[in-house]
Design a protein around this nucleic acid. Sequence first.
DNA 1: TCAAAAGTGTTAATAGTACACCCATGA
DNA 2: TCATGGGTGTACTATTAACACTTTTGA
Lengths: 211, 211
Amino acid sequence: MTAYKSYPKFYVSVDCIIFGFKDGRLKVLIHQRPYEPGLGEHSLIGGFVQTNESVDSSAKRILKEFTGLDNVYMQQLAAYGEVERDPGERVISVVYYALINVDNYDTHLADIHKTQWVDVDQMPTLCFDHNDMVQKARHMIGENIKNQPIGSNLLPRYFTLSLLQTLYESILGTSIDKRNFRRAISEKDYIQATNLVDRSSRRGATLYRFK
Amino acid sequence: MTAYKSYPKFYVSVDCIIFGFKDGRLKVLIHQRPYEPGLGEHSLIGGFVQTNESVDSSAKRILKEFTGLDNVYMQQLAAYGEVERDPGERVISVVYYALINVDNYDTHLADIHKTQWVDVDQMPTLCFDHNDMVQKARHMIGENIKNQPIGSNLLPRYFTLSLLQTLYESILGTSIDKRNFRRAISEKDYIQATNLVDRSSRRGATLYRFK
DNA sequence: TCAAAAGTGTTAATAGTACACCCATGA
DNA sequence: TCATGGGTGTACTATTAACACTTTTGA
């Protein structure tokens, strides 16, 4: 039917860089690669595209398999297509990054898949080109956070400004002046104060939320 | 050898959005699709990834086949993976955009492939999801031009500031104040005045070049 | 002489950066 | 009472935006 018959076909995988914010640090979810090549090495969460799903849905499916989460902020990062990137067979990988609230994710699934959170500033060596992917994704988030309310995906529903600042600092890798930060936030219309108070500090801190 | 055997394989294509600057307008190179499905429809320049080449090299090869050009500014845009995006067979496409100097490109090849330049603001309907790709690429260039000297890829070696401004206006889709523009440019260290003069205007205009 | 494009500065508004002290409270 | 984190304002600097007239010269 089509003129494509003479062209080769490839395995197409999806790798997900799942970011979470935990203990005041930006983390990435990894696990141990469950098959050869690279069995047992640190690896991003991934899988293969199936015939009945788009690449985007494949990414969503994989995210759900590993975290139990649906409806998550997820963006395509890039396709990785070096010939030898996977030493076993030729695999072209489309990479996504997702931002999740670590409180929501399914720890039972985490046990099954032996996933763990690692600090984005202390990434172990991952298999293949996965470290490159993480670096690129981190850079991308840094760009996005300046203009988009992406923190809403990483934080609990109610949060203090201190926590929000810690998140920004940990994404950007810099320290931010408290007063400047709070002024900037107060100008954003997608973050609003509530009349709730967090009592885990002595004085208590106003809780904020995303609209 | 590997655990991948049970997964499906896919055709992987590359589509190139080749931008050029011509007659004071930003243009995209298209041609008529040479095979079914969509035979004869307007289409981006594309081809299929081969087994012995990375996806990046595939894009370079295709660019060279259609323009004769090497060593061109080229960036990956995204992967497009909807199941039905190609009505013939399942094809996952990795999309690149390139910026070329239209004076350098091989018009003999243009004849062979029946390529033509179309104004980015007057794109005809392209096959499949190609219009989406162009829109996304255009947006991306607009972001990049603010910080990177990407104009060097689109302009001749020597150019007037008026031409450069026209290029910026046509990429950004806005008009720019002449004095503000010239001041901003004079602060960039990658653009410098030469002592050459363009005599096609009455008064004559200083020619500039990229370092 | 005049049409057409080249060239040139100043001011106002906005955004970003640097910086230090008082407050409320639980232990 | 004091240690802890919460909360606040001002001055300086850099960047961006708005705005109009003179110059040169080929036709």
